[in-house]
Nucleic acid binder design. Structure first.
Lengths: 341, 341
DNA sequence: TCCGTGGATTGAAACGTTTCAATTCATCGG
DNA sequence: CCGATGAATTGAAACGTTTCAATCCACGGA
């Protein structure tokens, strides 16, 4: 195996000093052309590759930001990540993608890892309302931006979509379609998005003078949990069974859809379904899914920009809270077409 | 903001030397209990967090491996990644997840980044058949394991699923269902999986004495491309139009499904569809999708184990090529049920 | 009392880079 | 011909950790 090649080796080979090689690498314009060529040749011949750890150590911080995601299996987050990467690439920074898997302990481990890595900043969609460790990182000088989550205190930037409004939109749509017994499927309620979306839906029902939501709490926001909730729903006596369900995300809605089909119930005739996120697969679902769309890439891009702005160290940085508006996308899962009658 | 805290600061505070603090961190059993407690207290009081760059620099390599993925938007890869993370966590290593986005240039950039980071090893699903840069990394001592891709030469380990067999299974199923004009949708053909799956399907057709596949080449393995292919397919004169389509992955198949629905064609009556990967959304699709299932997590876990084995530096390491068998999962997209007549 | 033993601790070197003050050297104006 | 100028280059320090040979010290055995 080739031995590790350092700047020193390159310098010797090119007959110059350490510093000159470094200058070729970082400020080539300061180096006379013939010297530069000689150094570049030596680099190529030896196959020299910078040691990033050494750079970081010297610089005091890494050339990367990180995005800590709630559930990498949810296409919503991969779309947000695309936006993040886009913004980071423009700034010449790498992005570490870490997955908390809806697990507080893993989230904590991820943050510790990033702290040790001295990343320039962290984007995170936290599990709990407030993440104490993240707040601590922020205080110690590592900027943290909350993604898809409104910050309560003003101590950190945040980029979010108005989830209360989203829940309201979804429920209002169902109410206007004539539904009166409406279920909310989602959980755990420790996740703020779940609470907000529930709050919005509950608000809409109250406004319409309807009975409160039937809440089916799930233990995760995933397809399998949606299926399970569907089975519970089917088990209810039909007189009390809701005629419509609002799911806290599309994964749950897709699982619910599967359960309905399996149990021989029809969507939307027996049960109307609204999802949340409008992931790519929602439109391709068994019954194309009505869903609440969020500007995913924009969310990621904006969050990264906010982070970079804060990380660039402007002393007068003001924490900002950007909020986008969600948008209802109506599809077959809530509209009984004459075709289906 | 808190000033950075180094081992030195902790040592001063605890009234011991640098080395002792390091020992508390790395071999606590060598340190007398009272001393250890004092050091631990100092660490807590100062909020000391190890600087990973310095550790890496000293150690000569990082405590991480990386998984360079073809398309992070494809749930197939997130599932594989789960397996990778699982194995890596057991070994106490972090996993960097990088996305090539089906783009050779980004793939290259990702590998360069990892080279500079001196990661312990790299898992990659490369775009082109052979990745010269990856081979070079391997020669320079950074182990590289190919994921979901059989290595041609014996210079690297690989973990793959028999894609030729998978293609064969899919096509055979269609043939046995009575189809004779069969299309293959997939691309670009620079991706080996696409070629292998095509080869398997072609083999099955030849064996049955049927006319060759109608190939609709796509520029990416994504939903939008599937839709586009569907539109092309519908445009064919119906006498020549295939009655079944085998898609190189589920994303394409889901897009195809959408296009069919939009154009008013029925699946499987007008067109039977087989996908590949059996991602979670395949079962929840408009028409539940027949697909070729791969053991995703197992793939990731095995690949990571192979990598760790090689990275642990056993001199007698033999490159291995593990191959798993795919499995056909039949669903509604290829079976005309009497219900649908 | 002295020596040997071994556990605990120390102190300095080394990892590879960047940075910056110091140095060299050629050139140009006077 | 001298001194000033400034571009090019040098050399050493510093970043924070780990490691390891060296040192210290207490204790038990002779």
């Amino acid at each position: 195996m080739a031995q590790p090649v350092s700047i020193r080796d390159v310098a010797l080979r090119a007959g110059v000093s350490n510093g000159t090689v470094s200058n070729v690498l970082n400020r080539p314009e300061r180096v006379a052309a013939p010297t530069r060529l000689r150094v570049e040749a030596a680099i190529a011949e030896l196959g020299f590759v910078r040691n990033e750890s050494a750079r970081q150590l010297r610089a005091g911080r890494s050339r990367a930001i990180a995005y800590v995601v709630l559930d990498a299996g949810n296409p919503f987050f991969t779309d947000v990540a695309r936006g993040v990467e886009h913004a980071a690439r423009e700034a010449g920074l790498a992005v570490y993608l870490l997955n908390s898997d809806e697990n507080a302990e893993r989230e904590r481990e991820n943050l510790e890892l990033l702290h040790e890595q001295r990343v320039q900043g962290i984007l995170i969609t936290p599990i709990e309302q407030d993440n104490e460790y993240a707040a601590q990182l922020q205080r110690q000088g590592t900027p943290v931006v909350l993604v898809d989550r409104g910050a309560q205190d003003a101590a950190q930037c945040s980029v979010a979509v108005d989830d209360v409004l989203g829940g309201d939109l979804a429920a209002t749509h169902l109410i206007e379609s004539g539904h009166e017994r409406i279920a909310m499927i989602g959980g755990p309620f420790s996740i703020q998005q779940v609470r907000d979306r529930h709050e919005g839906a509950a608000r809409a029902l109250a406004r319409a003078g309807l009975p409160p939501l039937t809440v089916l709490e799930t233990s995760a926001l995933q397809v399998a949990e949606g299926r399970r909730a569907g089975e519970r729903l089917v088990g209810l006596p039909s007189a009390r069974r809701p005629t419509a369900a609002f799911c806290a995300n599309d994964l749950l809605a897709l699982g619910l859809l599967q359960a309905m089909t399996q149990q021989g119930l029809r969507v939307p005739d027996d049960l109307a379904v609204v999802g949340y996120d409008d992931i790519e697969f929602a439109a391709a679902a068994a019954v194309p899914l009505t869903s609440v769309r969020q500007p995913r890439e924009l969310l990621g891009r904006t969050a990264a920009q906010l982070l970079l702005e804060e990380a660039s160290g402007e002393p007068a940085h003001e924490h900002r809270h950007v909020q986008f508006q969600p948008e209802l996308v109506v599809r077959a899962s809530t509209t009984m077409t004459t075709l289906r009658w």
